[in-house]
């Protein structure tokens, strides 16, 4: 490979290419295991979590994400095409509204999954596909 990763970083914008290499990562991502670990083995039911993401992200190094779930104690974000599936876990105290926004890194086009633990101890999830035009894979 003629380019070093640093070169790729410079070309693509420093933050954009933060998660090389991309080749064999999906197989070892283990997103289901990561979700099961978060939920203590419970299978989250689909729906009931607000997950706002762009359909197309120009910069995989900083993709804006907003999550919210009525009455949630915790909300976790996972990405099934990154080198590792975990992204972030929010835990809300009683003073906070159970919603948060941040920016995340995506190595390429993939699914982002938000899993919420509700006040009654059940888990819900929402999945969104994101097309990344300039992710970690150039």
């Amino acid at each position: 490979m003629a380019l070093t990763r640093r070169d790729v970083l410079r070309l693509g914008g420093a933050a954009a290419a933060a998660m090389l290499p991309c080749g064999a990562q999906a197989a070892s991502n283990r997103v289901e295991e990561a979700i099961a670990q978060f939920s203590g083995g419970a299978t989250p039911r689909d729906g009931g979590v607000v997950l706002e993401v762009p359909e197309i992200a120009d910069n995989g190094g900083a993709v804006p994400v907003r999550v919210a779930a009525e009455g949630a104690r915790r909300i976790a974000l996972f990405a099934d095409g990154n080198p590792s599936p975990g992204v972030v876990v929010f835990a809300f105290g009683s003073l906070a509204t159970p919603a948060a926004s941040t920016r995340i890194r995506l190595a390429g086009s993939q699914n982002v999954i938000a899993v919420a633990e509700l006040a009654d101890g059940t888990f819900r999830k929402t999945t969104r596909a994101i097309v990344v035009t300039a992710g970690g894979c150039g």
Partner: peptide, 15 residues
């Protein structure tokens, strides 16, 4: 009020 656990997939300059 809120506590956050970050993995390396959170962007630089965490917001």
């Amino acid at each position: 009020a809120i506590s956050v656990e970050l993995e390396r997939a959170v962007s630089a300059d965490p917001y």
